[in-house]
Design a protein around this nucleic acid. Structure first.
Lengths: 420, 420
DNA sequence: GCCGCTTAGTTCGGCAGCCTAACGAAGATG
DNA sequence: CATCTTCGTTAGGCTGCCGAACTAAGCGGC
């Protein structure tokens, strides 16, 4: 939860150079999985001498491991292999959503080592939900310990509008929660410092999850759109999340595609959510909309919808096609404004994609201004509803990758600040 | 036109530190107008020793001037005043728009030293327009020389979609120009290297113009929306332009507010431009839409519209109010997606603001999701149609401010590369 | 008018961190 | 076993920031 933001202009000195280059080496290894000092030198543009020094520091900090020599056979001395240390640090991701709570543990190699989901309706008193979340967090921390991983932070995804600097949830319409200092409440329950816990919007973190865990870097700048109970989007530019001035960016669910349309709970009319939200699709398909145990639940109404689609029931197919069309119209507007390379569909859009994509693409082609000579790419996330928790855990991991110096300096592991 | 973009990850060394700190000092002086070494040290967080060294280099490069001592009277030795050098380097801005061509010269202090507009219809063969533009550029260069300013670059604003890296105009619907290598064509006519000329979208540069020449830094992240013949927007985040993956960001004119609305030339339906463009407003006000000599022309139809509004003619007032409402509905969607602090109105919206803002604000309040607890601010640019040329000239200036090292190193002034 | 006080700017030595160059290490090849 | 190639380390040099000491310049008190 450390601000990390631009606290005004700041002078640079050699430490910045070091920090930058440590991150550079870490990143470079992270994308290819492994490397050697010589390879790193050519990949990063640094000299062998400097890479040696940087690598030494990263190994010291437990971020890299040196694992024997490179496969022999080639001419010349074989390099010694450097890998991201998968036995060292870890990130913890948590998620509260309308109808489930989830936790996961990820190692520095972006491997998911632990993952739990509990289906439960959180549209009630928030205390119970937070207690449950704290229990799951504790379990995840214990699991990490069993794997001999030292967690370096916790990130929490929530389906609402957030003030990341202060760790507050401002408003979650679909949970009916308002103005909750989630980071503080959770820190207290876990006995951790609030600076060790981050909070962000579910769609934003899901976008990052897709970026880091589903090959999203190949998509360039992209908009991740997902539907669960609500419809949200996360915008990724230049490998970074675009959060907007106050962190409200990506509220695509309440983009209007028909100003004279049906009124929405947000006060507006004709919001995308009214056409493409889970409930809207189910209703228009003539299926029950009992969302209490839907998304994560194999017996939920989404499963029923999928079954109906498989059976080619016309009402279901038409409902999904209409949703795709509406989404396309709304997304075209988004594309005209932010010009992404790709649109990525997630959440329940992932399983619905076979029926959704064609009408969506058609609508995009009609309205997106750049469409004629560079039509927007449409991709489907393979993560489905897991994207957000993974993104949360990934956030912690990525902080280590891009600023390894933090670990180099600070004491190791979560919760150590208590004793200072 | 130098790419400057991220050519992959790049190693950092002490030179980066120097570059950063040179920029820091330059920026710091630029915002306050003047400073002293001691003040700079506290303002930037650098030490006096370092600031001294940096200032020396900047003076050497002609970016700063040292002008006598600070006003006496206070206790202690008075500092010696450092100012941005207004007699040194300059930026040249050019603009081609539908019904005029403009040029301006700006000094390092963001002062406009020269400004010319010629009203002319450019919706014809582009050769004539480019010839005219080159003539105006030459005149501006001569003017700079007369002021003893050395131009460091030229930036060109065009009303269309652009590939900034290659300096090509891809498509300008309102000019009916397609795929023109404007930078190359202009460089040839002026005998300059293409790397000394930048090209960008008119709305983007206008947004920067507003940021740098009309106190826009107080607005935080903002969306600048202007209407001339078309309706365009520029998005400024963190003091920088948001260009999107391919530079098409901000094409707000073709955001749709009614998917069953009137068809638009872009292929879509119900585009904002059909409601808030200059022609649309004039037509719905029952005025002639002869745009050949409108925006820059005191006898043009916009002047007539303003006169009608002053006379409180109902048809004109209703037309503008309807435009404001439509713009509000469209902007609400934009705000929900990119969450700016402020919306800034420019172009012909500037004079229309007294009649436009109220219905616009009302529409925003109804549909923007964050409106209830932090309503979007609406501001009006004082620059009107001059914003884009100024932004273009400012772009050159800002490059010098944020990376003074470029000048420190390179030969002085435009066109010197010819002789290398 | 001299002396001390305060603030400004410079000089100098120290240190971090990158670079170049040279060198030892480890395997392949003949 | 000598030679070749590539890898990684070590030593020395340079850039650039910092801290501290020093000089500069104005003010005010006696």
């Amino acid at each position: 939860m450390d601000s990390g933001s631009t606290a005004g202009p700041v002078p640079a000195d050699q430490r910045n150079v070091r920090r930058h280059n440590l991150g550079l080496v870490m990143r470079s290894i992270s994308v290819t999985g492994w490397s050697t000092r010589a390879r790193l030198a050519t990949a990063t543009g640094l000299t062998k001498a400097t890479v040696s020094s940087l690598a030494g520091e990263l190994i010291e900090a437990g971020l890299l491991t040196e694992s024997g020599a490179q496969a022999k056979g080639a001419t010349g001395r074989p390099g010694s292999v450097l890998e991201v240390n998968r036995q060292g640090h870890a990130g913890i991701g948590l998620e509260i959503n309308v109808d489930y709570v989830a936790a996961c543990v990820t190692d520095l190699g972006h491997r998911v080592r632990y993952h739990r989901v509990e289906c439960v309706d959180n549209r009630t008193e928030h205390t119970a939900s937070l207690n449950r979340l704290a229990r799951m967090a504790s379990a995840a921390l214990r699991a990490a310990e069993e794997f001999e991983l030292t967690p370096q932070g916790i990130a929490v995804a929530v389906p609402g509008i957030v003030e990341p600097e202060r760790g507050r949830l401002l408003r979650a319409p679909n949970l009916d929660w308002t103005d909750l200092p989630i980071v503080d409440l959770l820190a207290e329950r876990l006995g951790l410092a609030p600076t060790e816990i981050w909070l962000d919007n579910e769609a934003n973190l899901a976008a990052l999850g897709v970026l880091w865990f589903a090959g999203g870097s190949a998509w360039g700048d992209f908009v991740y759109v997902s539907s669960e109970i609500g419809v949200g989007a996360g915008i990724v530019t230049d490998g970074q999340m675009y959060r907007g001035a106050r962190g409200f960016a990506g509220e695509i669910g309440h983009v209007s595609i028909d100003p004279s349309g049906e009124p929405c709970g947000c006060g507006g009319r004709g919001c995308i959510e009214r056409y493409c939200g889970q409930e809207a699709i189910l209703r228009s398909a003539g299926l029950p909309t009992d969302t209490a145990t839907s998304t994560g639940n194999p017996d939920g109404p989404v499963t029923e919808l999928l079954a109906a689609l498989e059976r080619e029931e016309q009402r279901a197919v038409r409902a999904v096609r209409r949703a795709g069309e509406a989404l396309g119209v709304g997304l075209a507007n988004v594309i005209n404004v932010i010009d992404p390379d790709t649109v990525v569909l997630g959440g329940i859009f992932t399983p619905l994609a076979p029926w959704l994509v064609e009408p969506l693409t058609a609508a995009l082609a009609g309205q997106a201004i750049a469409a004629p000579w560079s039509p927007p790419r449409v991709a489907v996330s393979s993560l489905g509803p897991e994207a957000a928790v993974r993104g949360a855990a990934g956030l912690v991991i990525e902080q280590m990758l891009s600023d390894p110096a933090r670990i180099t300096r600070s004491g190791q592991g979560l919760g150590n600040n208590r004793h200072v």
